[in-house]
């Protein structure tokens, strides 16, 4: 992709601000735990203490430090969000492009499968699958989220591919004697790239939400902390009714900030690319 496009995208305020928020949270998740080395699982503080200089976000009912949990939780949620969305993206792009390129019977079979999976409510499917695993590590949770979230990507990729293939600029390349491979690399892929990136962004926000949902209902990761697991603990130990706001407000706010920023990024990209990709 020409660097001019990147330059123009970075001039969109909505895009840069959202990206900055994501990068900041990513940075916090990556280095936070080492800068603030308090163990998130060690119950060594006075339980249910409000924020203080010793525990900037207070402690939970077991006497564990909430800030430390939050830092580890951000890291975990981003990790699951990213791996799950990559898995979903890989499946979706593979199925969508095979269907779009092969056409015919292959296309029909793949799209029928996709439509059926699309009609199955992914959240119920995730809960159901997760229920049968006794131990759920972050990778398993990512896989469960990934294998249930790909259908709309497959459909979008196929539709986009079909529409691109019918564009006249592909004919021009063909008339210049380009091979199928070169056409795929020069004419199809760069125009798909923006869409695929948008899909990744949306998948990621969906995956982090799904992780939180799974955790809240009791089938999240079985060891470690994520934003969803923090909310789950808060819910199980009645943090709301006991007025321990510092326990459930931070993880929820971070989750909303992450998800809203991702949505803004994809909206900004869509507004930038749609008119161009349609040629107008």
């Amino acid at each position: 992709m020409p660097s001019r496009i990147l330059l123009e995208i970075f001039k969109i305020k909505k895009f840069t601000i959202s990206l900055a928020i994501i990068l900041l949270l990513l940075f916090i998740g990556l280095v936070g735990p080492s800068i603030y080395p308090t163990d998130p699982f060690e119950a060594v503080f006075r339980p249910e203490d409000p924020p203080s200089s010793k525990n900037p976000l207070g402690t939970d009912s077991y006497g564990r430090d909430v800030l430390a949990q939050l830092l580890h939780g951000i890291r975990m949620s981003l990790y699951i969000g990213f791996t799950a969305s990559l898995i979903a993206l890989a499946i979706g792009v593979a199925i969508g492009s095979i269907a779009g390129v092969k056409g015919g019977l292959t296309d029909e079979v793949l799209m029928s499968v996709t439509n059926v999976v699309l009609a199955l409510p992914s959240i119920l499917l995730m809960l159901l699958i997760a229920a049968y695993f006794k131990y759920r590590d972050p990778m398993l949770v990512s896989i469960i989220i990934g294998v249930t979230s790909w259908p709309w990507v497959a459909r979008a990729v196929r539709a986009q591919l079909l529409s691109l293939r019918a564009r006249e600029f592909v004919h021009f390349s063909r008339m210049a004697g380009y091979s199928d491979f070169r056409i795929a690399v020069e004419d199809l892929l760069p125009n798909m790239a923006a869409y695929i990136f948008m899909a990744l962004v949306l998948l990621m926000s969906g995956a982090m939400m799904a992780e939180a949902g799974l955790s809240m209902i009791g089938v999240g990761i079985t060891r470690g902390a994520s934003l969803g697991i923090m909310l789950y603990w808060a819910q199980m130990l009645e943090a709301v009714r006991r007025g321990l706001w510092w326990w459930f407000v931070p993880p929820g706010s971070v989750l909303v900030a992450l998800s809203a920023s991702l949505l803004m990024i994809s909206t900004a990209l869509d507004e930038y690319f749609s008119p161009r990709l349609k040629g107008r």
């Binding site: 992709m1 020409p2 021009f172 390349s173 008339m175 210049a176 380009y178 760069p190 040629g279």
Partner: peptide, 28 residues
């Protein structure tokens, strides 16, 4: 045997400069 297409918008790959479409023909 060469052609000119009806839709001038769809005839250009938005990712490339105009130069490309002319150099493509040169390669023939």
């Amino acid at each position: 045997v060469h052609g000119i297409f009806q839709d001038p918008y769809a005839s250009f790959n938005p990712m490339f400069k105009v130069r490309r479409i002319l150099y493509q023909a040169l390669s023939l």
